[in-house]
Write a protein that binds this DNA or RNA. Sequence first.
DNA 1: ATATTTTTTACGGGAACCCGTAAACAGGTG
DNA 2: CACCTGTTTACGGGTTCCCGTAAAAAATAT
Lengths: 221, 221
Amino acid sequence: MIKKVLIAEDHESINLSLQKTFEEFGITNPDYVYYCDDALMRIQKAIQAHQSYDLLITDLHFEQDHREQKIADGAALIAAARKLQPDLKILVFSATGKPATIEGLLNEQEIDGYVCKGRNDFKELIQAIVQINQNQRHFPGNLRLSIHQKNTYEFSELDIIIISQLIAGTKQQKIPDYLKKNQIRPSSLSSVEKRLNAIKDALNFTTNEQLIAHCVKMGIV
Amino acid sequence: MIKKVLIAEDHESINLSLQKTFEEFGITNPDYVYYCDDALMRIQKAIQAHQSYDLLITDLHFEQDHREQKIADGAALIAAARKLQPDLKILVFSATGKPATIEGLLNEQEIDGYVCKGRNDFKELIQAIVQINQNQRHFPGNLRLSIHQKNTYEFSELDIIIISQLIAGTKQQKIPDYLKKNQIRPSSLSSVEKRLNAIKDALNFTTNEQLIAHCVKMGIV
DNA sequence: ATATTTTTTACGGGAACCCGTAAACAGGTG
DNA sequence: CACCTGTTTACGGGTTCCCGTAAAAAATAT
């Protein structure tokens, strides 16, 4: 039975909304934090006091501000929390509906649920909590569909660096220099070309211009 | 004095949050909708009933679902609302902090405020409403910076066609063919090159990739 | 109609990019 | 160690792009 809940969400408006609704429901007595570091500290303290949390509800993306954080985003928080308390139930409540991200969390961290922020997010959130309470897992139905949907490509760290360099105006030939200077491997021109070709191929593009437009439009960079 | 408020926001969690907080404050008696079309209809009916709204709070991005909508996003809603009721105060509450988008709304639609969804969004939202109530406008501080750096280049019809073609994936060499087919002049390859060089020169760019990124980011295409 | 200016086009050499191939370099496995 | 496998590099020829120059065409003026 879920009794003790912790909510990590940086958007004040959403956080307040969760607070009010939970209090209204009166089901649990949840705690709310705006930073990942605070969330982890709470989890740790709760364990020490032998009053560990039953459920963590967290966003994935956290805006960074003046307060320096050791844990930058929800994924890192989840990993850290799992380490401290393996039996903690985790429900992700996020807007970034990238299927690859969700699947990664599902498989690697074995999260118990995912709810996408959107039109009916609140009803779904409640439903998810009910399901998790019954030791079930909750995921959006479109997950399977969207996994197979075309024009989806999971950009690697390197991909984003290369594309960012292109956007910054560095010529393709000079990118190896940049990579070597920053100790990034692979760093050869052939590798850069290979990477760009692979991406373009995966997305059915033929020119760099198309790729750049897509990435900017999709907010990948 | 702001008395009658309409809120258009598709995220249920945020919408609920706004509802609860406004009711708590007891300042106004706001209406809430989840779709742009509903928002416009409410505005129209309110005018007909001689009880027009004083303030519209709206998101920019609306997720599309089964319900087919004539108005797809916040920008279109704002334009339509302004047409119906020019004196309506408009406050944008959105997460897409693209300076170009905000500036466009500011200049063309003369919106009265913009609040970015984030860590302290709710306090800022309240502050914005107070300011608008005093016939002031409210914008985030970082906007000023981005206004000053505005790269002034007037894109011609031809420029936009060329850039659009690049984004569509047509090679630079094939663009003359396209231009001739559509009876656009000048149509030679040299002219296309000249145009692109002139633009890049004016904006201090060196590569096509930079230019494409800029145009997409600024919403020119 | 002729000259002048501006714009458009044509062309060519050099730089950058695309693409396939082959060699060098890892990381496992018997 | 030799072997296989997969990845990263190095290289070369063919294409596309960049850039300057000069001819051709169009617009304007004399």
